[in-house]
Amino acid sequence: MSSENIPGAAPSLSRLVQELNRLPGIGPKSAQRLAYYIIRLPDDEAYALADAVTSVKQNIVFCADCQNLTDASPCPICADPRRDRSILCVVEDPLDVLAMERTRSYRGLYHVLHGVISPINGIGPDQLRLKELFNRLAEPELTELVVATNPTLEGEATAMYIRRHQSREDLRITHLARGLPVGGSLEYSDETTLTRAFQGRQEL
């Protein structure tokens, strides 16, 4: 939307609305609401927000090992001597690392691809951090690769591509169990999920 779209609004306000409107999931209405909210913020809070945006752009780099976003490379997880270096978990994006860390049940390392292979959107292996992954697989300490891409068609295709292109025969390659979500129901499950949940059944 252009600044002319807000009749009577000051140009600096229109510019803020316009920038907010670019954010994913923020429509023109939400952008206006957020802009008016920011205007009413105390000065220090508004400047803290602006400063956070500036600082994230100035300081965030990709971790040279796991490719996650970090203030300093290697990132805190890669630098932590207590992490188990024999196991590497591949995820689509940095939010997936946060989700896995919240479980507190995984103590290995990560690798962030920053997307999945998406042929229709023109995203191929070269647009992802796959070369960096294949380089890391040569690490002799590494014994297991957990491919934790999402169980979507493109996530699975990316997992298959990784499986196809890694050359270490002694590497155990696993993926996360497919099955019923907690709070889900059999009745509404699709047949692929049900089939895989059945295959993955466990002793009661």
């Binding site: 191929g124 292996p125 196809r164 292109h165 696993t174």
Partner: peptide, 17 residues
């Protein structure tokens, strides 16, 4: 088409995990 071409060129045996 470019991913299709790429797989064709690489033509490695495929395995599903």
């Amino acid at each position: 088409n470019s991913f299709l071409e790429r797989l064709h060129k690489e033509s490695l045996p495929e395995v599903y995990i």
